[in-house]
Nucleic acid binder design. Structure first.
Lengths: 334, 334
DNA sequence: GTGAAAGCGCTAACAG
DNA sequence: CTGTTAGCGCTTTCAC
């Protein structure tokens, strides 16, 4: 194994000089700097992560609790994680994958100094992990927007604005009764915050326009078609649909396309929307961007910068009907 | 921060005694052992991971390169990862998520002593990372079965047996011309080893029974229905389908159910199969089990136990037609 | 501008 | 059965 001592010897300098060349924490003459860098390259030296973290009291690792549970939209989760990992690497951070949903894992990782910070996904409205975070006092960011998290930093997509936007778009298209076909039962029962915010925004906008609207749970499978059928049976005047359920999307959209006068909008990543040509419009769910944004927030926290407590990525309408410029919802604060 | 010295002081023993109580590497009197354990609990002591790994020269972390790329079956990938994380935790290991597909990441993680071992998913037939692994000489396990990996440990599902099994089942059901609707183009082009093995087994079994068979790429979307239509247009006598494409599965199965005489079998996780009631049978893809098995292999390697170079999880037919006992393919070696 | 040396918290000889 | 101590490889004072 190549150590800093080997590099120092090869470059004819002291150990501390090598360390300072790497950290840039003091001025080094051009000459020695180059000698050291050459030695580092020649020996393919990589500082021992544990030794570094023991001495510096920081690991450059972020702990991530990602949901591997049922009902979640796996595609979206994967994209968010991809965004997190990519952004983290850009800032020299690595990601430690913690098993989801246990406060114990958070304890372990932080108390054992395995991580500098925590990133939690799939946060519920009243998530027990929030109490744990408070007591741990480790820098942390939630991907989501739980209720009682005033002092925690949250990053999420603006689901409420997306709900409003979808409603307004459907109404603008002339629909006079609309329905939101949303997340599956597990997600609703768990009080996952995004589902609640989406339907709140949707219903509020419909109410403002005096357009009757309903919200429905959907399984993530072909079964979702039955939900659509039931909705139409009960309210034959529904002509506008807003779909937020990736597993159900293709099935519902396909079925809807066979019914005259029915139009559907979806909330999903844009690459998914592209595979469902019968959609009128879609609202982009910027999953990877969410991951990047959350990681940026964590890194800002770690750098001691002041960050907004809540950052919501704006909803953007990706109109299939050739809108020249995408509409934007303003960033919301709290 | 609570250190081992704090625990030692609280228990009235030396720090080495505390260390040995934790590791069990020497016999300790019942009395001191209990005092130490009480102190550990009372102080909620967790050994500093970096200090421990610096002294012991092992991190208890496994590096994982999971694919976040396109064409992969996200659901399956998530389940495999879930299996890996769960099994790793059972053995006191954590998972460091490396960005996929770069040999550089493997170098970084190992040279910096961040991980004890590596786990690679989504391996291609001629994967460039294999050369890197060889030169790194870090214990590693591949989830997959590339061509030139004689000295590497591989764990995978027995796709070839699954292909044979599907063919034989369709033939037993009376079908005299069959088709495999498989992975999307990206996966095929990348020479992902599982796709090749699956179709090899399928075609071989069909040839042995003199049943004509064809293999087709499928997009992971609704578009896959067009592939089915094209197949039927070209070979109207196709009556048996074997589907291995999670995104396409529901669409193809739904379409197939509308065509008289057509029967379909799928290869997918059993919970997915359950959502597609029109399948005749399905072969279970034990994704989570694959993750566990791969992790077990890694842990065996790290423990210096001798492990088989190749372990293939057997294909199991989950007949929807009330087979009393699932058929099993024998474990293959190499 | 550069070095020497004192830790960081732990493990594992070595010494009883 | 238990304690003392020399590192593990690095960062960061302190000294020049």
């Amino acid at each position: 194994m190549v150590t800093i001592a080997d590099v120092a010897q090869a470059a004819g300098v002291s150990i501390s000089t090598v360390s300072y060349v790497m950290s840039g924490k003091r001025t080094i003459s051009q000459d020695t700097k180059e000698r050291v860098e050459r030695a580092i390259d020649a020996l393919e030296y990589r500082p021992h992560a544990s030794a570094r973290s023991l001495a510096s009291r920081s690991t450059n690792v972020i702990g991530l609790q990602a949901p591997l549970r049922s009902g979640v939209d796996v595609h979206v989760v994967m994209e968010i994680v991809a965004g997190i990992v990519r952004e983290a690497r850009m800032h020299q951070y690595d990601i430690l994958l913690l098993t989801s949903d246990d406060a114990e894992g958070l304890h372990r990782a932080t108390r054992a100094s395995m991580v500098d910070a925590l990133l939690l996904m799939d946060v519920e409205s009243d998530d027990p992990r929030i109490a744990t975070l408070r007591e741990l006092a480790t820098p942390s960011v939630l991907v989501g927007l739980p209720r009682g998290a005033e002092e925690l930093t949250c990053v999420d997509f603006d689901f409420e604005a997306a709900g409003r936007m979808a409603a307004e778009r459907l109404i603008a298209l002339g629909h006079r009764r609309v329905a939101l076909l949303g997340s599956p039962r597990e997600v609703i029962d768990r009080h996952t915050s995004y589902a609640e915010r989406l339907s709140r925004g949707f219903l509020a906008a419909c109410a403002e326009h005096d357009v009757p609207a309903t919200v429905h749970q959907c399984p993530t499978t072909h079964e979702s078609v039955r939900v659509l059928n039931a909705v139409l049976a009960e309210h034959p005047d529904v002509t506008g649909l807003f779909i937020h359920n990736e597993g159900a999307l293709a099935h519902i959209a396909a079925r809807a396309a066979t019914i005259d006068g029915l139009e559907a909008i979806a909330l999903c990543p844009s690459d998914i929307a592209r595979t469902v040509p019968t959609l009128v419009d879609s609202i982009d769910l910027p999953a990877e961007g969410l991951g990047s944004a959350a990681t940026q927030a964590i890194i800002a926290l770690l750098a001691g910068e002041s960050t907004p407590k809540v950052r919501l990525l704006p909803a953007v309408l990706a109109s299939s009907r050739g809108a020249s410029e995408p509409e934007r919802a303003e960033v919301a604060g709290r």
